[in-house]
Design a protein around this nucleic acid. Sequence first.
DNA 1: ACATGCATGTAACTAGTTACATGATTCC
DNA 2: GGAATCATGTAACTAGTTACATGCATGT
Lengths: 185, 185
Amino acid sequence: MTKTYNHTTYALLGILTTDCRTGYEIKQLIDQSLNHFWKISYGQIYPTLKKLVQAGLATVETTAQDGKPDRKEYFLTAKGKEALQTWLEQPMKQIPTERNEVILKLFFSRHQRTEPTLALLQDYKQQLQERYATYQSIEALITQSYKQSQDASYWLYTLDFGKRVTKATIDWCDVTLADMQTEKE
Amino acid sequence: MTKTYNHTTYALLGILTTDCRTGYEIKQLIDQSLNHFWKISYGQIYPTLKKLVQAGLATVETTAQDGKPDRKEYFLTAKGKEALQTWLEQPMKQIPTERNEVILKLFFSRHQRTEPTLALLQDYKQQLQERYATYQSIEALITQSYKQSQDASYWLYTLDFGKRVTKATIDWCDVTLADMQTEKE
DNA sequence: ACATGCATGTAACTAGTTACATGATTCC
DNA sequence: GGAATCATGTAACTAGTTACATGCATGT
C-alpha cells in the first residue's frame, strides 16, 4: 500500500538528511561523494525537487536575493523521512544486470583480429587503474580528515566496494589478456 | 567522420554475425547468453531492426507463412559489417559509473538502525551467491559442449568477468557485515 | 577581459520498459 | 482446456542526458 517513488527521488530524500538544502548544493555533494556510484544532472534535480514538494515529501523556503536568483531551501517533511526509511529497509527484488560495453564488444570479437581486442582491453585496464588510484586517494583523505566521526565508516564502505570491484576487473583484464596472447600463438 | 549509432544498434549488428536472423531469435540468443551483461526488449529490437534497414546496415527478406505472421530475416550489409568492426575497435572514452542501489542505500543509512542495513546486505549477498552459482553452471555447460570450438573461449571470458566481479562483491558484503557488527557492539 | 563559481531552471532529445494486441500450434 | 512457444509489432510511459538561457560576484 506504500507508494513507491523512483531512484532519483530517494537519492534526493537521502541527501536532504544532510545539510544540503538547495539544488546546487545537492549537485555538488553528489559530484564530490557519490559520483562514482551514482550520478545525477540538474535536468533531474530541479524537476524532482519540485515533485518532492508536490508529493508532500519536502517543503520549500524561498529567500529572495538581490542580483541572484531566489535561493530555494528544501526540508524533509515527516512523510518524506518515512518514505526514505521505508525504502532504505526494503531489500532489492533482484540485482539488475550491469551493462558493460567492453564485455559486449568482447562477446562479438571472436571473428575479429585479436590485436584491436587486446588494445581495447589494455585501454580498459588503464582506465580502471586510474579509477582505483582515485579511490585510494579519496580513502586516504577521508581517513585523515574524519578520524573521529563514525559517519566516515559508511563513506569508507562504499569506497571499499568500489576498490574491490575495480580490482577484480583489473585482475580479469590481466588474465584475459594473457590468455588471448597465448591463444594467438 | 564515421557515423556512430547507439549501443542497441551495435548489439544487433553483432548478433546478426551469428545465425540469428529474426527479431525473435535475437531476443532468444540474448536471453540465453548475454542476459547477465546486456538485456534487450522487443520494444527495442523491432524498431531498431527497422532502423538498421533504413540506415543501410542490413537487408530484410520477408517470407510469408500461412497462419503465422511473416518471417522477417535480417542480413548484414557490407556497410553494417564495417560499422560493427569500427565500433569493436574503438576504445571506450570513459568507463561509466555503474549505478548500484545497495550502495546508494548504504550511503544514506548512517543515521538508521543497523539491523535493517545488515538485513539488506545479507539479502544482497544471497542474491549474489545465486548469481555466482548460475555462472558456474553455465561455465560447466560450455566447457563440456564446446570443448573443440575456439568460439567458446570468448564466451568464457565474459563469464569469468561475471564470476570475478560477483565474487569481489560477495567478499565485500562479508567484510562490511563483519565490520558493521563489531561497530555495533 | 575572461574564466570560474554561485544559482536557478527548461526544452528537446535519446534510451529503455511495460503492457498490450494478434493468432496459430504444440505439449500436458 | 489451458499453458507455453512461435512470431510479429505498437503505444504509452519513465528515466536520463545535453544544451541552452539568465545574470551577478570574484579572482587572475
